[in-house]
Computed example of a mutant assay.
Amino acid sequence: MAADPVAVNARGMKCPWPALRAARALRDADAIVIEADDPIAASELAALAQQQGWTFAAFGNHRFALSRTR
């Protein structure tokens, strides 16, 4: 059974900090949910996920999910 996603709060941080926080969190977790309100955070997080081979999903209110694919 998979563990719940790790919550990461990157509100108020300008890119690239949300992507850096996401990458660091995914060193130790298989999935994260990150809150990031920088206008370019969505594209930065999507690019990070694509580069690493992770899945990416965007939810309303500046919430995003990234996970390792198995």
Rank of each mutant, 00 (worst) to 15 (best):
M1P: 04
A2Y: 00
A3Y: 00
A3C: 02
D4Y: 09
D4H: 06
D4G: 08
P5T: 02
V6E: 15
A7Y: 14
A7S: 10
V8T: 05
N9Y: 09
A10S: 07
A10D: 10
R11S: 12
G12K: 12
M13P: 03
M13Y: 15
M13H: 14
K14E: 14
P16R: 08
P16I: 02
P16F: 07
P16G: 06
P16T: 08
W17R: 13
P18C: 10
P18Q: 12
P18S: 12
L20F: 13
R21K: 15
A22S: 10
A23E: 15
R24D: 15
A25R: 02
L26N: 01
L26F: 03
R27M: 13
R27C: 07
D30I: 00
D30A: 12
A31P: 03
A31F: 01
A31T: 03
I32Q: 00
I32C: 00
V33K: 06
I34N: 08
I34G: 06
E35G: 04
E35D: 13
E35V: 05
A36V: 04
D37H: 07
D37S: 06
D37A: 05
D37V: 04
D38F: 06
D38E: 13
D38G: 04
I40P: 11
I40A: 08
I40V: 11
I40F: 13
A42T: 05
A42I: 01
A42G: 10
S43K: 09
E44D: 13
E44G: 02
L45G: 03
A47W: 09
A47N: 12
A47I: 01
L48H: 06
L48Y: 06
L48P: 08
A49S: 12
A49M: 06
A49D: 06
Q50D: 15
Q50C: 05
Q50Y: 12
Q50H: 14
Q50K: 13
Q50M: 09
Q51S: 13
Q52T: 09
Q52P: 05
G53E: 08
W54E: 03
W54F: 04
W54G: 00
T55A: 15
T55I: 02
T55W: 05
T55V: 06
F56W: 14
A58G: 11
A58E: 15
G60Q: 12
N61M: 08
N61Q: 14
N61T: 05
R63G: 01
R63D: 02
F64C: 03
A65Y: 05
A65M: 12
A65H: 10
A65C: 04
A65D: 01
L66D: 01
L66V: 02
L66Y: 07
S67A: 14
R68A: 12
R68L: 12
T69P: 03
T69A: 11
T69D: 06
T69H: 02
R70N: 13
